[in-house]
């Protein structure tokens, strides 16, 4: 652990970059994750996360075959995530009964396309695992800037549109009657989710990203009764969990993504258990006859 702290405060070290990246992303998990969990669209977020592989795959493919050196994997991921968000959002808004089918299709097609692009990319060194379960210890300073920029945009939009977004999540019909452009805000929420997912994929990989969106927010929502309280709590929890997770993974040399997620799950269970214990105490308190 001492090693870890020494590394964290070493400018430009791998551990410092990873910790900074996870702290930036934590604000996103907290804010966007809370909307996602409260609106019950975690499965949409999961589909977007998996479809991101198509964009990453295409970027690797394009660099190898067309020599598009500007086409970095993060860019591909962003484009793929936004496209799947728009497709799923459109289906969800206008063709409601087929929503779950389309989500599964986007999920599977995105992954398949990504795998094929990677298969046909000769320069690709075959490190598929880093996309699937994350590679936080390979974050470059340039990634940090992209993550920071995306994070700021996403959080500002979420805070700026806090009231209409909350209304759209809580009571879509009433929001529509008050002249709120419900489809526009729902689409905005999905696009913000997709951008956050891209950040998460950097940290924890495609398969595990969804856990980071869901777990801190679920813990926050369980413990509070206001949306923005839940956002703050989820952000703080995510920051603690990801820092501890990186420390843990660094000390005993295990992958960081799974370490962070297991810690998140543990703290969610702790919040759940605490709330259950409180209601248990309240129920078993002696009553006046």
């Amino acid at each position: 652990m001492n090693e870890f702290f020494k590394e964290v405060f070493t400018p430009g070290s791998i551990v410092q970059l990873a910790t900074l990246a996870s702290l930036i992303a934590s604000v996103n998990f907290g804010v966007v994750g809370t909307y996602v969990v409260a609106r019950r669209i975690t499965y949409i977020a999961a589909a977007i996360a998996h479809s991101v592989l198509a964009g990453i795959g295409f970027a690797v493919f394009a660099r190898a075959h067309f020599g598009w050196d500007w086409c970095v994997p993060v860019l591909g991921a962003i484009v793929a995530a936004v496209i799947s968000a728009v497709v799923i959002g459109y289906v969800s808004l206008y063709l409601r009964e087929r929503e779950d089918t389309i989500i599964s299709v986007v999920w599977a097609v995105g992954m398949s396309a990504g795998l094929l692009f990677l298969y046909y990319s000769p320069g690709f060194n075959g490190n598929l695992e880093s996309f699937l379960v994350g590679s936080i210890l390979y974050i470059a300073p340039a990634d940090l800037w992209i993550m920071g920029g995306l994070g700021i945009v996403v959080v500002l939009l979420c805070l700026f549109f806090y009231n209409p977004l909350m209304a759209v999540c809580f009571d879509e019909e009433f929001a529509r009657l008050r002249g709120v452009n419900v489809p526009l805000y729902f689409m905005l929420l999905l696009i913000l989710t997709s951008l956050s997912v891209v950040l998460l994929v950097q940290l924890a990989g495609i398969v595990l990203a969804i856990a980071l969106i869901v777990l801190p927010a679920a813990a926050g929502l369980h413990a509070t009764s206001k949306l923005w309280h839940a956002m703050c709590l989820a952000t703080v929890l995510a920051m603690i969990q990801s820092t501890l997770g990186i420390a843990w993974s660094y000390s005993v040399e295990i992958p960081a993504g799974p370490a962070i997620i297991l810690l998140s799950a543990a703290s969610y269970l702790a919040v759940f258990g605490w709330k259950w214990w409180q209601s248990h105490l309240a129920a078993s308190a002696p009553r006046q006859p």
Binding site: A38, R40, F160, F161, Y162, N163, P164, M166, A167, C169, F170, D171, E173, F174, A175, R178, G179, V180, L221, T224, S225, K226, L227, H229, A230
Partner: peptide, 29 residues
Amino acid sequence: LHFDPKFPVTCMEVVLMGRLDRLPWWGRY
């Protein structure tokens, strides 16, 4: 009451939604 019964919102926030259409550009009541 067709909405999520567990949605984290206070009564005040629910009532304030009645003036969503009059929110100023900075989005606060």
